[in-house]
Design a protein around this nucleic acid. Structure first.
Length: 243
DNA sequence: AATAACTCCAACCGCCAAATG
DNA sequence: GCATTTGGCGGTTGGAGTTAT
């Protein structure tokens, strides 16, 4: 797409920010093609939308990423790949651009997947798959994301039961499994854990397939075979995660 | 002090799918 | 059914700021 002639590019000025903010506050989000005219901005619709989404939107969290946020990014990227908008959906206040930039500048070279390549494990096929719709996940200093035991308490241990009694010998795999189970199951309000079979029933485009997922599925060849190999290992070892 | 090299992030670009006419 | 418009996404880049020499 070529940019329109005469449309301003580059860094936004304070005046432009004010105009855009006032416009969105007055007319609401959406209808981005009308925003430049309504706001009196000599910017293209995409530029306006991006500026709002990445900088002006309320509740955007600036500053350094916390340890639990970084941990979340690494784990979710292993699961979802470069689906930054979905990953950002789990990080309240962080935008997809923030997460993508952070990954590219801080994590990309640190997080190595050589193990997967070296494993040379045979391709695994599954016939059924869980589809995740990420929801914002609240973080705090005492976040349970970094506390596997707390995660286990929340996800497995019946009320009143001692975690050490219920799981005296926790393997690394158990801990990983518990983490993912907790992530993929009960999390936030409006949580949607969509399940589907690999058959025609429930495929995108059919009435039974939720529109939200239908829109997400299909980008960049995304399908149930696109998960990283370690996710298949997780699914193999966690039959409850597969319906 | 000068400047080259590097880092980081805001913004742009091209593409895709859904919506609309 | 087709063409166009629109919203949204991930990849990439330009340049300001920082650090090293």
């Amino acid at each position: 797409m070529k940019g329109a002639i005469g449309v301003r590019k580059g860094a936004w000025t304070e005046e432009e920010d004010v105009l855009l903010k006032k416009c969105v506050e007055k007319y609401g989000k959406g209808k981005w093609h009308q925003v430049p005219h309504r706001a009196g901005l000599n910017r293209c619709r995409k530029s306006c939308r991006l500026r709002w989404l990445n900088y002006l939107m309320p509740d955007i969290k600036r500053g350094a990423f916390q340890e639990d946020e970084v941990d979340m990014i690494i784990r979710l990227r292993r699961l979802l790949g470069n689906r930054w908008s979905l990953i950002a959906g789990r990080l309240p206040g962080r935008t997809a651009n923030d997460v993508k930039n952070y990954w590219n500048t801080h994590l990309a070279e640190k997080v190595v997947y050589q193990k997967l390549k070296e494993d040379n494990s045979p391709t695994k096929f599954a016939t059924k798959v869980n589809v995740i719709r990420p929801q914002p996940w609240p973080f705090s200093k005492s976040s349970a994301w970094l506390d596997i035991k707390a995660t286990l308490v929340a996800s497995r241990t019946p009320p009143g039961e001692n975690i050490e009694q219920s799981s005296p010998m926790l393997s690394h795999q158990d801990k990983e499994s518990a983490w993912w189970e907790n992530l993929l199951s009960e999390s936030g309000p409006n949580e949607g854990l969509i399940t589907s079979t690999s058959g025609l029933e429930g495929q995108p485009g059919t009435d039974s397939w939720p529109r939200e997922f239908a829109m997400e599925e299909g980008r960049n060849g995304w399908n149930e075979l696109s998960f990283d190999a370690d996710v298949w290992e997780f699914l193999d070892s966690n039959p409850h995660a597969v319906i």
